[in-house]
């Protein structure tokens, strides 16, 4: 065997050398945080559909009241309790203005001599449900986004300070959290609503009063995990200030977790608003939110189920979409999923 080696032609071998200058070359294009997340969430069909749905609902919340020929606040008593009727679709046998009166089906628009179309019908005061629905959606979304934003800011700052500075500061801050976390969310929300004048501000304060605790705990945990890692130590050795370490090294690393948590705070806030309005502690008439509309619809459930149907549908779609998007983002930001 060994002798045979000599017989091999030397030209079939080529000496190669490792070019050390190429060893550090990055073969894949470098991606920013957002590009990376987008690449992965793109593969998640449910998350993409949810995103489209959310954009649609948000656009409609602003466009809806403008599109409708009727004003949301205007009460036309002669047009009260009309079922939905839409141009074109009416010929298909539904949304044709037919309702039940005294056990008989009849075209209520003809009976009440109404020439106009109310796409989602009208309520007991003759207000256009289509405009009211989208204005209600606007308010519900507004409350949810503001509440989520406040939770985010307070939670990140509180958790960040507690985690980063540690020691006695952390001890004191965590004792406060430990007591607060014991108070059931529901109790705080209801008590605060009782004390304050019912309205948008009261609901937002009630939701955020304990809402930030979850975020602060997560941020603190993440900061604790990252602050003693080598890259932070290296940065500190190179003379980076606390602010720079927090802004350039820690925050980007926990951004994913913060976003995911916010994505789950939003549907939570939407739910609490609807819940409060449903039991009568939320917005007061004539202001409408999805919760108050559902509450109105519930009272008329037996006779005009459509008043309940559309707000419930929008509320449910919003909740499903935010939850699915949250799930999708959680998968997308999970570093274990990186390929």
């Amino acid at each position: 065997m060994t002798q045979n080696l000599d017989k091999l032609p030397t030209e079939s071998f080529k000496r190669i050398t490792i070019d050390s200058s190429q060893a550090e070359k990055i073969s894949k294009p470098s991606l920013s945080f957002w590009q990376d997340a987008w690449l992965r969430i793109r593969k998640n069909k449910a998350a993409i559909v949810s995103m489209v749905l959310l954009v649609l609902i948000i656009v409609m919340a602003f466009l809806g009241p403008v599109l409708s020929p009727h004003d949301a606040e205007k009460q036309t008593i002669t047009h009260a309790n009309l079922p939905p009727k839409v141009q074109g679709i009416e010929k298909l046998g539904f949304m044709d203005g037919v309702g039940v009166v005294g056990g008989k089906e009849m075209d209520l628009y003809e009976r009440k001599k109404v020439d106009e179309y109310y796409w989602f019908g009208t309520d007991g005061l003759g207000r256009d449900m289509f405009s009211r629905l989208w204005e209600g959606t606007q308010i519900s979304l507004f409350i949810a986004f503001v509440a989520a934003f406040i939770d985010l800011v307070v939670g990140v700052i509180y958790g960040g300070i507690s985690g980063y500075y540690g020691g006695r500061v952390d001890d004191a801050m965590q004792r406060v959290v430990e007591i607060l976390i014991g108070i059931p969310n529901l109790i705080v929300v209801i008590l605060m609503i009782l004390v304050m004048k019912p309205g948008i501000t009261a609901i937002i304060i009630a939701i955020t009063l304990t809402g930030w605790i979850g975020m602060s705990r997560i941020v603190r945990g993440q900061i604790l995990k990252f602050k003693n890692q080598e890259f932070v130590l290296a940065s500190r050795t190179l003379g980076a200030s606390n602010n720079r370490i927090i802004a350039k090294h820690l925050i980007p690393n926990i951004l994913g977790v913060i976003i995911i948590n916010t994505m789950f705070t939003i549907p939570g806030a939407i739910f609490f608003e609807a819940f409060l309005s449903f039991i009568g502690l939320g917005l007061q008439p004539p202001a409408a939110s999805l919760g108050t509309l559902i509450n109105d619809g519930f009272r008329l459930l037996e006779f005009q189920p459509y008043i309940l149907l559309y707000p419930s549908l929008v509320l449910s779609l919003l909740m499903v979409a935010f939850n699915l998007l949250g799930d999708g983002l959680r998968d997308a930001f999970d570093p274990k999923m990186k390929d």
Binding site: G297, S312, S316, M319, F322
Partner: peptide, 12 residues
């Protein structure tokens, strides 16, 4: 669906 749809909507 169970996580998203509020119980009062489902109940009605």
């Amino acid at each position: 669906i169970g996580i998203s749809i509020p119980s009062f909507v489902f109940a009605t």
